[in-house]
């Protein structure tokens, strides 16, 4: 498919199971040891995300 050239190379964020399945398929994959941001508080994480958005817009 012209949208994706060549084989998939995957960054996996979340369930480690998916990284293991991909590795077993022979796919190049790097698993991220993800932890919820802002101590796992969704409201604080939302604020953090808004700040990142502002950064992005300014930058």
């Amino acid at each position: 498919m012209s949208l994706i050239e060549g084989p998939l190379r995957v960054v996996n964020v979340g369930l480690e199971l998916f990284a293991k399945e991909l590795r077993a398929e022979g796919v190049e994959v790097v698993h991220v040891d993800w932890r919820p941001p802002a101590g796992g508080n969704p409201r604080l994480a939302g604020l953090l995300e808004r700040l990142e958005e502002l950064d992005q817009q300014e930058g």
Binding site: V10, V11, G14, A19, P36, L48
Partner: peptide
């Protein structure tokens, strides 16, 4: 993995957008 072309994301929904 500098040539990565796809991210598989399965974190809890509240954090997925980010």
């Amino acid at each position: 993995l500098p040539g990565a072309n796809l991210a598989a994301i399965s974190v809890p929904g509240a954090f997925a957008r980010r």
